[in-house]
């Protein structure tokens, strides 16, 4: 058996899991289980939010180390579910590695909801939370339109590949700027409720939940790293809001 190829497949699955929003424990456990079920002697995995390192010792006493560097995430819980099932299948049925490799490729390219549908969803979420936090239905309408635009801004950020912190700042700035413009020109009554509805879209909920789950599982380092990221993003959302208020105030619109 090709140990190097086995490790590569296991790491590919782990990498995709981490990108899709898995906890550290799940990633490490999955890589370990896959390797042991294919009969390697020893496997050591170390994972943090941005990197996976694994060393495998096979039956001929060869040591193989491979790493994966993760630079961006995209939460996709269907993909995570499929990867989870693939790893279970590998542990029980031990399919041929070529087959596994093809399956990983297929999962990597599995479909998401189309952009226009995500735009509508952004609008619906923003509008719903505006009412949720006590806004009127008129405010919800304005909030929903800004939500749709916000998705497009996030999309542009995705294309330009700026880092997460800066992209949150940019999105928050643009969103608040639009909200101020709308309210100052007589569309919508309460700037507070419109911005709150849209802020819900920017808060990194998965990051926070996963950082907690990492901390409970004893992956302190990864948990703290994720927590720092969440706090940085929250601060950059605040910075975006304050900047846009200053710009609007300074321009006297």
């Amino acid at each position: 058996m090709d140990s190097s190829f086995l490790l590569s497949c296991a790491l590919d699955i782990g990498e995709q899991m981490l990108i899709s929003g898995a906890e550290i424990y799940r990633v490490e456990d999955c890589i370990k289980r896959i390797c042991s079920s294919y009969g390697v002697k020893r496997i050591d995995v170390f994972t943090i939010t941005s990197s996976i390192i694994a060393t495998l010792e096979d039956n001929e006493h060869r040591n193989i180390t491979q790493t994966r560097r993760i630079s961006s995430y995209k939460t996709d819980l269907t993909k995570l579910d499929k990867l989870n099932q693939l790893s279970r299948e590998m542990c029980t049925k031990k399919p041929d590695l070529e087959v596994v490799h093809e399956k990983i490729k297929a999962i990597k390219n599995s479909k998401r909801y189309p952009l226009w549908f995500e735009c509508i969803t952004y609008g619906a979420i923003a509008g719903a939370f505006t009412v949720f936090f006590g806004g009127s239905f008129a405010d919800a309408g304005v909030s929903a339109i800004i939500g749709v635009v916000l998705r497009l801004i996030v999309y542009l950020n995705g294309i330009s590949k700026v880092n997460q912190v800066f992209s949150s700042l940019l999105s928050s700035f643009a969103m608040c700027f639009l909200a101020f413009l709308c309210v100052n020109n007589g569309f919508g009554e309460s700037i507070d409720n419109i911005v709150i509805g849209n802020i819900m879209l920017l808060i990194p909920g998965v990051g926070l939940t996963n950082s907690l789950r990492d901390l409970i599982s004893g992956d302190i380092m990864a948990g703290v790293l994720r927590l720092c990221e969440v706090i940085l993003i929250a601060l950059s959302i605040a910075a975006g809001y304050i900047l846009s208020a200053l710009v609007i105030g300074g321009a006297g619109i």
Binding site: G21, T75, D76, L77, T78, K79, R112, Y113, F117, E118, T121, Y122, A124, I125, A128, F129, V131, F132, M200, G205, V206
Partner: peptide
């Protein structure tokens, strides 16, 4: 109304996370 709006929010995020 608040519960309904919260539910829309939950469904919305489930869609964004591709469930």
């Amino acid at each position: 109304i608040q519960v309904l709006m919260g539910t829309i929010g939950s469904f919305g995020f489930s869609i964004l996370y591709n469930i």
